[in-house]
Design a binder for these strands. Structure first.
Lengths: 210, 210
DNA sequence: GGATGAGGTGAACATAAGTTCACCTCTGAC
DNA sequence: GTCAGAGGTGAACTTATGTTCACCTCATCC
């Protein structure tokens, strides 16, 4: 969305909306001729005139002579950060997440500042079911972002593989031996019989109301 | 990040990394000549040969004859959704958020599926301080996404303007009269003396560990 | 009625950028 | 030693795309 404080004509808003939409869906910026085709203006110089006016109004920028270089301007544009695309699963079977991208049920796209991580192919997201972590304010339906390969530390929330299923628990050590704690008194601690398989450490959470 | 299952040469990985980086920062895709400049290959046909091989490996796609049409392919590419850029504030003074974009302290970029909203210029994000909403699993440091102009309903979490500050509370009605409830017994309910100013309804939350 | 701005037509031109082909060196495998 | 692949040079060509200019209609304002 663009600031509504600068007055614009109907055609200008149409152009800005097209650019906004193209950008938000990750497509390359359109050429002048593509803008014309979209809006029913079969004439590249009419489009060029509109672009020039929007540039003068400070609502977009172009690089002279460079193809597909139209960029919308907004006050928050300089505050934007890199965006990562994280595969979202209901559960994670064994194996590195990279080999499981094919089985993702969705994708979480978010900027690196908001999730506090650097992008790596070992990051995945997990949708939580149940209330076993409610003591740490993680509730049913939340999506948690997990960093695979990160060494868990005492107190970290981790995704662990138990009985072929991913589960979220707090990672604790007692006399050097790890165990998992549900953050809900309804559920007992889990002391692993076999070796504990930690799939990753929780780094962020995304919740939507519904 | 791209699937590591398809073997690639060093140069191919360099090209893919450049494309990945350009895409994640919201820049238009590079031309072949720009790729060459970046990697120190002053020769467009060498780049074109690499692109052709990557296309054959299914790792990227181009539209024949269309400028800047290189797009990375990945299994989660079809799962991606539109991304919105939401201004982030520490607090919101009075007035529609659009007029306040200049004062944003940051920007939350996230896909529409993850926050469950359609993009509008009335969406803003607020960083929470304090523990007044801990009963609803909203904790200090969380970032909440607020939809301005949405009519609050009984039980909604809202951003309200109190004493010139934004605060997050549960919106309740008693005999038709609204009041605000902190979700922490440490804090009393707020029955507004003057008219209650609701800045918006909470629609999503983003939390990062630190 | 004239001036101005919005919105457009048409055409031509310059440059950016994709495509193609012949040719080269180096390295590793057989 | 040969072959194939990786990685590249050089040049030329075609097409996409941005730029520019003259010109037009229509609506609104003074």
């Amino acid at each position: 969305m663009f600031t509504s404080s600068t007055p614009t004509t109907r055609r200008q808003r149409e152009i800005l909306q097209l650019l906004e939409h193209r950008q938000s869906t990750g497509e390359p910026p359109p050429s002048y001729r593509e803008i014309g085709e979209h809006l029913g203006i079969p004439n590249v110089s009419a489009v060029a005139k509109h672009i020039a006016v929007l540039r003068r109004k400070g609502l977009l920028e172009t690089t002279e002579g460079k193809t597909r270089s139209i960029q919308i301007q907004s006050p928050i544009q300089p505050l934007r950060r890199r965006i990562v695309h994280i595969p979202l699963f209901g559960s994670i079977p064994a194996g590195p997440p990279t080999e499981r991208e094919q089985d993702a049920e969705g994708c979480v796209s978010v900027d690196v500042e908001s999730v506090g991580i650097r992008p790596t192919s070992r990051t995945f997201a997990l949708r939580i079911t149940g209330d076993s972590m409610i003591g740490k304010h993680i509730i049913d339906g939340d999506v948690v972002v997990i960093e695979h390969g990160k060494e868990p530390r005492q107190g970290d929330v981790v995704a662990a593989l138990i009985d072929g299923q991913s589960t979220l628990k707090t990672f604790l050590l007692q006399r050097g031996r790890p165990f998992l704690r549900a953050e809900n008194p309804k559920y007992p601690d889990l002391i692993p019989g076999a070796e504990l398989v930690i799939q990753g450490v929780m780094v962020a959470l995304i919740r939507k109301r519904n």
